[in-house]
Amino acid sequence: MSAPTLDRPAAGSPDEAALQRQFEATIAADHRIEPRDWMPEGYRRTLVRQIAQHAHSEIIGMQPEGDWLLAAPSLRRKAVLLAKVQDEAGHGMYLYSAAETLGADRADLTDKLIERRQKYSSIFNYPTLTYADVGVIGWLVDGAAICNQVPLCRSSYGPYARAMIRVCKEESFHQRQGYELLMTMMRGTPEQRAMVQDAVDRWWWPSLMMFGPPDDDSPNTAQSMAWGIKRHTNDELRQRFVDMTVPQAQVLGVTLPDPDLALDESTGRWRFGAIDWSELQRVISGDGPCNDERIARRRAARDDNAWVTEAATAYAEKHRVH
């Protein structure tokens, strides 16, 4: 069963121009659009795409760190990691819930992910080779996600903005546990410090790619910003992330793998080197190190657990009050 969808005037009907004006006035006043409001089909489509791929990213994002659940070095670290991975599942659920208010169907979105008809973030196609990767994901990947997500708390679509407020509250724990893990390792043996540096070397550039293509190559940005779905451009957010992260790297005692990284004294901002966009393109189009593995595991989770769904449905059916 999908969310109750409500009648909308057919496209091109005489009322549509008035509805469009009302929609634009709501956006212009920085008020929120709610599920029952009329909205242009492009707005609805953009939101469904964006929220669904965000939800898919949270769900697939459980896998790289989930790989370390059984190998975490202490009960404390295991409990923390378990809580974090559970949060990622929760974030996916909040977002699917928001997508359903737009008329999307949750099971249908999952099918589209598994059949590779919808995508998720490129970052989760990289492997977690050592335990230090768990810390670096919390620090850099969740740090980049926070940069992207905090402005989305003011997104023009009410259910999406409310879901993002919930997500952002929880992401802060994710980033801090990662940084604390890395600080602990940096106080350890030379081998542990080398492990942290190696993880930073591997995750730094993919983290910068998380913000998407440069502004002059991002044709959808203008429309999304006009609609209030997006509040800052990719390059603005990327720069903000770099400026926040460089001092954190200095405190941690690691080197960011970019020889061109330098403080611009006139602006107080950090200049960084050229990003290899062909790598992003390659990983996005399915040729990353772990794309096949991620999808295969998501498919197995759906198929292998189908009997639980069916049993619960049968039980509910049997006990339904007629």
Binding site: S2, R45, T46, V48, R49, Q50, I51, A52, Q53, H54, S57, E58, G61, G103, A104, D105, D108, K112, R117, Q118, K119, Y120, S121, S122, I123, F124, A144, A145, N148, Q149, L152, M164, V167, M209, M210, F211, G212, P213, D217, S218, N220, T221, S224, I229, K230, N234, L237, L280, Q281, I284, S285
Partner: peptide
Amino acid sequence: LTAEGGHGAVPTGPEVPTAP
């Protein structure tokens, strides 16, 4: 490509279906 989803870059081309 876009990063609008908050969690990183993903494609948006016509081959990516969006409507339910």
